[in-house]
């Protein structure tokens, strides 16, 4: 066994494994991996206390490339496996890396239940609105009518919206970011790392081969200022290259308004990330084509007891003096002596 020594300060390279990264050139996954490896040393968590768990799909190769403990599991089941790991060792920092197919199609059930239980795991859902690893079939987030290998006349399915699923399942941290905006991505990963409870992050991720440009306007440096609304707690929802657009509520519906730069109207929405899920849910409806932009950032974060904490508390409460006596347990119930 390794000797206990004072933990040396970790760097990015400490989190790079010896495996060759095998995503397509230009894949958005590279940027996400790079940001993760960059922020991991800042968490103050020793490498051996971090576990990456994934299912199946392009994104699910992620654990092989991070030099922590890792488990590349089976399709859709990562949240359930992560739940088992976290219940067994609550002091581990557990990340789940999944995609739109893995997380919302085959693994939808596990994703829902991990979030509603508030298991202290951080779930990164790489959304590219396509099945990449199986080479180009539509996914549960593909927009209706999308022509793919398995939908030559266009998809009939109506899409799922990942954040709405997370909010409905009462995840206690719900956020969105974009693979190309590395600074924003890094900051969201950091916040998720600090959150105690189920953290869900939708990452817009470009599949350069099978669905290139799915989020082009939000991804491109040229267009993103006008196409992305950065949510910041306590600040009004203002966006645009010239800071001349904002969001206000009309009844239950968000509405985009334009105004003279520097003179936002007083009734703009002020972001409250601790507000009820109904507010965050309304925000998730802001997206093209109905709206010119899409919000990114922390939609909602609240503090609630985590599943693993509650589990440990029950175990603690069940402990009693003289408890755990196997001989007593075996001889429990009604017994009799044969002489």
């Amino acid at each position: 066994m390794a000797e206990t020594t004072v933990a040396p300060k970790l760097e990015r390279k400490d989190f790079v494994s010896d495996q060759v990264v095998r995503w397509c050139p230009g894949c958005g996954d590279y940027a996400i991996l790079a940001q993760m490896q960059k922020v991991l040393p800042t968490f103050g968590v020793p490498r051996e206390k971090i576990v990456f768990v994934s299912g199946i799909g392009c994104s699910s190769r992620f654990p092989y490339y991070v030099n922590t403990y890792g488990f590349h599991t089976i399709h859709g089941r990562a949240p359930a496996i992560a739940t088992g790991i976290k219940l067994a060792q609550p002091d581990l920092q557990v990340w789940v890396v999944t995609g739109d197919g893995d997380g919302l199609s085959i693994g939808g059930n596990h994703l829902l239940h991990a979030m509603r239980r508030n298991v202290d795991i951080k779930i990164l859902l790489f959304n590219n609105r396509i099945y990449g690893l199986t080479k180009g079939q539509y996914s549960p987030t593909s927009l209706q009518g999308m022509v793919t290998k398995s939908s030559p006349m266009g998809t009939l399915d109506r899409p799922l919206y990942p954040l709405r699923v997370a909010l409905a399942a009462e995840a206690t941290f719900v956020a969105r970011t974009v693979d190309t905006d590395v600074a924003h991505l890094g900051s969201i990963l950091e916040r998720a790392a600090k959150h105690k409870g189920s953290a869900f992050i939708e990452i817009f991720q470009n599949c350069i081969v099978f669905n290139d440009g799915a989020f082009a306007e939000a991804e491109s440096r040229d267009t993103r200022d006008d196409s992305v609304i950065k949510l910041e707690h306590g600040k009004p929802l203002v966006f645009g290259k010239n800071k001349d657009k904002g969001v206000k509520m009309k009844g239950f519906k968000p509405e985009v308004v334009t105004f003279e730069a520097g003179k936002p109207p007083a009734d703009l929405l002020v972001h409250d990330e601790n507000a009820g899920a109904q507010y965050a849910y309304a925000l998730t409806h802001i997206e093209p084509p109905d709206y010119p932009a899409v919000p990114v950032g922390v939609f909602r974060t609240v503090t609630e007891p985590t599943f693993d904490q509650l589990s440990e508390a029950q175990l603690e409460a069940a402990k009693k003096p003289g408890g755990g006596d196997l001989a007593k347990l075996l001889a429990g119930g009604e017994t009799w002596e044969v002489r």
Partner: peptide, 10 residues
């Protein structure tokens, strides 16, 4: 997991 120095992936 938790064993220092033996980080590995399966």
């Amino acid at each position: 997991p938790g064993t220092p120095g033996y980080e590995h992936r399966i």
